[in-house]
Write a protein that binds this DNA or RNA. Structure first.
Lengths: 236, 236
DNA sequence: CGGATACTTCGGCCGCCGCCGAACCGTGTG
DNA sequence: CACACGGTTCGGCGGCGGCCGAAGTATCCG
């Protein structure tokens, strides 16, 4: 009050952006890494377009979202990987306590598709993400014993698989991201993003509908087995 | 509204705990890893005891704080390392934008002591934390190239230095924590905590006053130089 | 036992914030 | 040009939540 801690003020202001159910729903939706229009988000969150417009204004002003205007559309996406990580961290903190019991078949099947495989901003998560991470670890390409890092063999593997790693910028090459369905860490960071992009580009997996869920194709099963020894059964 | 996303609800509820300046000030203060009494926090935050009591109730109910009652005192501390990490992450997200210009000499000297060396929950931060992390990296004990992990030599170093690493539990052995004064990652996780505890136990550094700041002793300078080659000049 | 201290509970006040619908603006379309 | 459509602005409403001080409870101390 007389002399407030500016750091506390800033922290509270940032947290306030997450502290609303509608905004939280938007941020979680945007974890798919894609850009959504304002009206899509409004429908998703179940509020009026005018309400959502104000929310987007705050989120953009707060630096959490980046916007891009095209014609009469306003596209927004998470500002950067740092923001995505923050959303993931908060979501992960909250998830362990949840024992979701889906209400009906639609939610149940949607939920199980998400649990099977999904993107987490720009990398793979769900059983798919875990299976890949485990396979990398088992083959000595990734080590989780004394931290979380690619091994030299791992670097070579990415190269030989033709998956380029753009190491400019500050983002860590490999980083652990806690999976909220599996409750175990999976590969994120530059390597995780590159792997996911490669998987989508080459058709190892495809997105299901407009959600974050992804599905492994037959070609993907073959490639994952050939390259990493991932058994198809781990993905179901 | 008809069918709200329970994850969004949970995330918003969690974030709401951080989204108040008074509670944020408490959480940041508790980042020193110690237990504070309710009245200490009330004084620190500049609010009435009754107000703070309600805040503590919420934070405890929300699982962010653990409490311990002793006589007429209510001690609280951060619930665990996970919570501490979340606070750090949020604080780090907010810090880069801040270019603090201290108002007066007291704040200035307090600030520079914090910048020189401090604890970040249970590990070392500030120039001290960075110097140690850099030294570990330069000596090949820690690698940040392909992630963030101790090397085999690093494991051996901890052993030979007599710093035990208790690897039970899920906490990662080594983890990067972004330093909000140096804006670079420093060592956290089990190894970071063990190193910090060792440094305080053996008198390499001592706490300054009741704050998070720590000061490297003459014995500490010698030990850090002998064991890691840290130059005393890096610590000033 | 009586007073001091630490904390909690309660009632009441105030301000902020999320919500909506209506009106408005700008862009694309027949 | 008229119209549809996506988005924004505005006014107004309602509720939540943070704040305080006063009163109450529990503990420690002399």
């Amino acid at each position: 009050m007389t002399t407030r801690d500016p750091q506390a003020t800033a922290l509270a202001r940032l947290a306030a952006l997450f502290a609303d159910e509608t905004r939280a729903a938007c941020l979680l939706a945007l974890l798919d890494g894609r850009a959504w229009t304002a009206s899509e988000l409004a429908r998703h969150a179940g509020v009026a377009a005018s309400t959502l417009s104000e929310h987007l204004g705050r989120l953009v002003a707060g630096g959490l979202l980046a916007e891009e205007r095209q014609g009469r559309h306003r596209y927004v996406r998470l500002a950067d990987a740092r923001v995505a990580q923050l959303v993931e961290d908060l979501a992960a903190q909250v998830a362990p306590g949840r024992t979701v019991r889906p209400r009906n078949l639609r939610e149940s099947s949607a939920g199980s598709a998400m649990a099977r495989g999904r993107t987490c901003y720009d990398h793979l998560a769900g059983r798919l993400g875990i299976a890949v991470t485990d396979a990398l670890t088992a083959r000595g390409l990734l080590q989780q014993e004394t931290g979380f890092a690619l091994t030299d063999a791992g670097l070579a593997w990415f190269e030989s698989a033709g998956i380029g790693l753009d190491r400019r910028g500050r983002r860590p090459l490999a980083r652990a991201c806690l999976d909220w369905t599996e409750r175990r860490p999976h590969l994120a960071g530059i390597a995780g993003a590159a792997l996911c992009r490669h998987a989508l580009d080459t058709g190892w997996c495809v997105r299901i509908g407009s959600e974050r869920a992804v599905k492994v194709t037959a070609a993907g099963e073959r490639a994952l087995f050939d390259l990493l020894g991932v058994q198809a059964t781990e993905l179901r």
